[in-house]
Structures are given as structure tokens and as C-alpha cells.
Design a protein around this nucleic acid. Sequence first.
DNA 1: GTCTATATTGAGATAGAC
DNA 2: GTCTATCTCAATATAGAC
Lengths: 191, 191
Amino acid sequence: MLAAREEAIIQNVNRLLAEKGFDAMTVDEVAAAVGIAKASLYKHFPSKEDLAAAAMVRVMRRAQQFLASVDPALPMLDKLKSAVRWTLQVRLAGQMPSLPSQNSSLRAALMSSRDYRDALTGIGEQLGEWIEAGQREGAVDPKLPSAAVLYTLYARACDPVVEFLKAAGQHTDEQIVDLVLSTCFDGLSAR
Amino acid sequence: MLAAREEAIIQNVNRLLAEKGFDAMTVDEVAAAVGIAKASLYKHFPSKEDLAAAAMVRVMRRAQQFLASVDPALPMLDKLKSAVRWTLQVRLAGQMPSLPSQNSSLRAALMSSRDYRDALTGIGEQLGEWIEAGQREGAVDPKLPSAAVLYTLYARACDPVVEFLKAAGQHTDEQIVDLVLSTCFDGLSAR
DNA sequence: GTCTATATTGAGATAGAC
DNA sequence: GTCTATCTCAATATAGAC
């Protein structure tokens, strides 16, 4: 029961974070969405930051599950593309929590969460392996530091191009995914 | 005198927006930085949103000036690269105001400002010309809608990769600029 | 653990004198 | 146009009964 309630809370936080972002999301809203009193919410999570952290851990765990399910036989480049594709699909489904890039209280709360750190390093290690293997096999640009590649992939999780293209209304979700994948891996210059 | 004071205000807003972002920046801080009382600030700008709009207009006007100064003889791709390079340099100098991507009151205030809309469309038209000319001459990927290219260039103004690389401390500012330019125009895949 | 009711405070905005 | 002092209010968080 308790776990189910907390799952309901996290699910709503996740959705609200995706819709409005951390600053615009209020704890009152979350409580109303779940259908409980705000004070009850605070029995489960001690602060708004912890709510955000729980939502982030949830989506990052799902990302890890996805990465673990990727066909190991695929070329490294395809593995990386499928990871980015998964991220973009989650975003277009309105289920990617969006946090401010600079917010010290939030960053502190995230980094003090063991679960968050573990999920983040887990994802980073998996992608890092694929990136470096991809560079060895000549598919990923070997001139780029692997960390730069990793950050560039991470950044697709909050790339405003997705919302721009969505707002423009000229493309289906699938087309948006393909466009962002193309610019990310092939660049803007003609090949 | 009045214009000079307002210039001082905008300059401080610009810096604070670059440092902390819109939500974390407080009007009290701005007043303190300028060295005037908060009430005096409100004689110049009617709201916090208007402060942000003024800062954005300022940097966008500078961007337009830069675009106008680019050598017309350059290949289109080099013109586009120099535009992105300028943006990244402004960011690394800590002078690019950062706004939340989703904030309805702020977006409304920005879009209700004639100066803002004019600057935005001016930049969009100039870059749009270069993009489409670049596609005609085969330098910019012709498979991409020109709007998608434009959005991708715009997005470099708030790409978190810049801060990630800066925080990692492994690269000079020049190297960071080159890395982001490389991933933006040439992609992550090997060529 | 859930509720109602309340405390607290940070921050945008304003009043009114000079 | 500048100041000090104040208003207002939203939003995080808590007290205390059940």
C-alpha cells in the first residue's frame, strides 16, 4: 500500500516536472494530483527536492533497464542511437522530468541521494563503454574526448529543439526523433 | 543620465541572468548590484520579466551586429559556424543570459515586447538566408528542414554541454568552443 | 498516515515622503 | 527619480488532532 502510494506520487511528480519544470511545479499541485493532503505528502518525502530526486531516479532506472535490453550484437553506433532515441521518445511522450540546469539546492539534494548517484554513474559507465568501443571500431569520431560525446548524448534529454519542432507543428513525433538523431550523429554539414 | 543608468541596470541583469538564471535571480540582487533601491529599479522597468526582456534584447542586438559584420565572401557554412562560435564565446565569458525554456509569464512578456520580437525575427531571417543558401550550395545537409537547422543553431545558446565541459576542467575555453562546433556541424559519427 | 489549519518566509511589487 | 518602509501573496513546510 505504502509503496503503491509512493509510486502514484512519483508518477505525478514525473508528469508535472515534464509539463512545467521544477520551479513552476508546486507541492500543492502534486498533492492535489495524487488526491491527498500536502501534509501527507511530506510524510513520504521530506522536501520538494526529494520529490524531484525520486522522479529522476525512477526515469534513470528505466533508462538503465533500457540500456540493458539493447541487443549486444548491434554496432556501437546503433546502440548509442537507440539510447538517444529512447530518451527522445520519453520526452515526446511528456514523461521526461525537466530540472533547471543551475539550482544549487536541487543539485545538492540530487547529489546527496545515493540512488541518484548510482543511477547516474551506471548510465555513464554503460554509455562510456559503448562510446569508447565505437571509437576503437572507427564509428564514433575518435578526435572527440569520450566525455564530450557522453555529455552531448546526455544533453539530448533536455534539448529545446524537440519543443521547438513540436511547437512548429510541421512534423510527427517520429520525424522529430529522426531529425534530432540526424543532427546529433551526422551534424548539420552535408556528408 | 537616465540612459546610462538603465544601461548599468541591464548590464547587471545580463550578468546575473548568466550566473544564476531567471528564477534564481532576485530583483533585490539586481538593485544591490546596481547600487540603487529596489523601488527605483521599478521606476525604470515595470517588472522582473521586463528586466529579462531588456537583457535579452541587448544581447540579441549585439548578435545582429555581429552577423552584420561577418565577411559576406565567406562560404555559408563558415558564416554559420562563426555565428555559433560568437554565441559560445559570449556564454563562456559569462555574458549570455539564461532563461527557463518553459515559463509562461516570461514568454508572454518577451513576446509582447516589440524590440524582442524584432530582434528575434531579424536574427532568424539572417541565419535562415545563410542556411538555405548553404543548402543550395551543398554545404549544409539538404535533407534537413531549414527550420530544424535554425533551431539547432539557436539551441547552442543554452547547450549544457558547455557547462559540463567547463566543470570538468579538462579543456580551455577555445577547446570547448571547437568541440561544440565540431559536434554541432560534423556530428558524433566519424566522417 | 491522513487530515485541517497554521506558521514562516522569500520575493515581487507599491506607498508616500523628499 | 530616489529613498525607506511596507504590502501582498504564493509556496514550502509544520503542528497537532484523529
